[in-house]
Every structure is written in structure tokens, then in C-alpha cells.
Design a protein around this nucleic acid. Structure first.
Lengths: 184, 184
DNA sequence: AAAGACATGTAAAACGTTACATGATTGC
DNA sequence: GCAATCATGTAACGTTTTACATGTCTTT
């Protein structure tokens, strides 16, 4: 269909549930999907402009300026929904992962082991924090799975929990191997 | 130190082990670290040029044109090694993950469940393939852990195995949830 | 003879982040 | 009154991918 910039699909996906402003979209991304996707204002606002030009979204009138505060909410059009569905119907996915932490471990031969151990420990701490939040979300969502939309949110959170727990197991293994090696 | 482009660090890291040409570097990336980092010729060759200008690498003379086939091998300099070590010594890591598959699941509410199921199954098949290879690598590497450098390679492969196994467990859960929901 | 691997490099395009610029409203 | 949050948007910058351009060598 279109050039299929991914941020476009994120916006279309979010708008398929509710009317949102650019600012709202940024928050939805940060709060809900930040562990597997990111987006900045610098990409969101231009995307909204051209999605509107292409007819996939439109400005919603209703919630206009009661207050003097500027706010432009968008809603998805039928064409936009078709576009979203076409993208969803292609089962091929590109998953682009950049783990700087693995890069640093991979090249750990160039430094002493305690340097790599510090890198692992910093990673571990970060993951422990995030995992707590994901587990909290997961527990809350597991109570409301009768609502169809919640199932999809639950599954992405569950993915996060599964991989983050794997990260932590790996951290244990890596710490053990690198500290044992020190003693030999 | 420098602007610290990540591809620079990848190149420096690879050259810290052995002399390599741009073409070799591309292969090392594709063969060894592709599941957590990528790099194209279009980024490698320009990076080699400026790394040389900055004095972090130099052209190695020895293996010059015995054959008519052009080949420029680079080796790391002391300055380059310091630069690499400085980067490794910063334990903060930026891990940038983009899972299009999760995006498609997250927005699955806009399509019928069989569409999302197909996406999961395609992902699962891909992961199963890659996991086999990772497990093969891991087994071979586990026999040569007495060599220090192998430990770091082993750990990155082990990370891959851990996360890929997690992906497959998640695929099972997701398939079950989405197909049960169909029957209600 | 052809295909595929080896080998280097450039140019255009796409994409995204960061920082900047601006201003209103809300809560303490 | 001040800080935080709400809110939109642009411009500069940097990075990376893709495609192109070119040519050699090895294996079948």
C-alpha cells in the first residue's frame, strides 16, 4: 500500500482504539509499548501530518478549544483502518534488535573481567526494575482477559516477562562464569 | 572521547582479535553477531575511512597484492585499543529493541484472531530455525571454554538460546490463548 | 561459460533523535 | 509564584540502509 513507515502503523493502531492527540500518542507509546517500540515527537507530529494528507486519519472536531490550550485530536478513517488491517495481515515481521550489552560482552576479551561484570550488573539492575513493573501489569491484566482487547495487551506484557526472566537467568550464568574465571 | 558511533566500536572490537578487511568485517558481523547487531557495507567502509583518519586503525602492509584482487586489511592501533577499552569500561548500555511481531500482536484487536495466529506461527518457525543453530554453536563452544576469548562468545550465544527459548514458550501461550478465544 | 564468492566504494533516500522555539494550564 | 505537565511543531544532525557501479577470482 503505502511506504509503510512503522511509526505510521503505531499511530494507526493506537487510533483504532480511541481519538488521540500527538501528545497522547507519545504517552501511549512510552507507557504501554516502550519495551518493544519507541517514538519521539519529532517523528510523531510529521507522521500525523502526512497520514492526514493521505486520508488515513482526520482531525476530530468535538473536543476543540473549550480551553485556550491547543489540542488536536485525530481519529482513524475507514481508509486508515484498511491500511492497518493490510499491514497486520502480512505475517512477515522484521524484528530489529540492538543489544549494546551483548556487544560489550562479546568484546570483553579486550578488558579485565571485572569490567564486563560491572556491565552485566548494571544491565541486571535495570532489568529487575522493569520486570517488577511488567509482572504487576501482567497480574492486573490476567484478571480482565474476558475483554478481547486486553488479551493482546496481556500477550505483549507476557512476552516481556518471559524474555526479561531469561535475561536475569543469563546474568546469573554470566556472572558465575566470569568470576570463576578470575580465580583460576 | 569520540562521537562513539557504535559501528566504530564493532569494527574496533573485531580488529582487536585479528586483521580484517571491510568484507571480512561484514562476514564476521553476519556470521557471529547478527542476532544482536547488524551492519552493512554502506556503513562499514565509511567507518573504516574515518577510523583510519582518526588514528584508531591502520592499513596493514603484509598481505598486499600478491594477487590482482584488491584487498585492504586493517589492524588496530594502540589508540584504537584504548578507545575500545574506554567504551567497554562504561557499564551503561543502550539496548534498542524493535519487535514488529509484538506491534502486530498488540494491535491484533483490529483483525480476526487467525490473522494474529499466522503472525505468531511465522515468527515461531523463524525462531525455531535460528535456535537450532545457536544450540549447535553453544554445544561446540562449551567444549573450548578454557580459552578465554571463547567464554565471551559462548555467553552471547547462551543469551541467544535463553531468549529464543523464551520466545518459543511465549508462542505456545499466545497460540493457546488466541485459539481458545476463537471457540468461546 | 556462468555463477557465485571476493572486494571496494559512493550516492540517494529514509528515518529518527535531539534540541530548539513557543506558549498555556494546573497543582503545590 | 514556580514547577510540572500539557501541547505543537521545526530544523539540524547523524546514522543506516539500499541500490548502484565496478571488477577479479574460483569452482563447476
Amino acid at each position: 500500500m503505502t511506504k509503510e513507515r512503522k511509526i505510521d502503523m503505531v499511530i494507526l493502531g493506537l487510533l483504532s482504539h480511541e481519538k488521540l492527540s500527538g501528545y497522547d500518542i507519545k504517552k501511549r507509546i512510552d507507557d504501554g509499548i516502550r519495551f518493544f517500540w519507541k517514538g519521539s515527537f519529532g517523528s510523531i507530529y510529521p507522521a500525523l501530518s502526512h497520514l492526514e494528507k493521505e486520508g488515513f486519519i482526520r482531525k476530530s472536531k468535538e473536543d476543540s478549544n473549550e480551553s485556550g490550550r491547543e489540542r488536536i485530536a485525530y481519529e482513524i478513517t475507514e481508509a486508515g483502518r484498511s491500511n492497518l488491517q493490510a499491514w497486520l495481515s502480512d505475517s512477515k515481521t522484521v524484528n530489529d534488535l540492538k543489544y549494546e550489552v551483548l556487544l560489550k560482552i562479546f568484546f570483553g576479551g579486550a578488558v579485565e573481567n571485572h569490567v564486563s561484570l560491572a556491565t552485566i550488573e548494571a544491565f541486571e539492575k535495570e532489568i529487575e526494575q522493569e520486570l517488577k513493573m511488567l509482572q504487576f501489569f501482567k497480574q492486573n491484566l490476567s484478571k480482565v482477559l474476558h475483554e478481547r482487547d486486553h488479551v493482546f495487551f496481556y500477550l505483549t506484557v507476557s512476552f516481556g516477562v518471559e524474555t526479561y526472566e531469561g535475561y536475569l537467568r543469563w546474568c546469573q550464568e554470566a556472572k558465575t562464569m566470569l568470576s570463576e574465571q578470575n580465580c583460576e
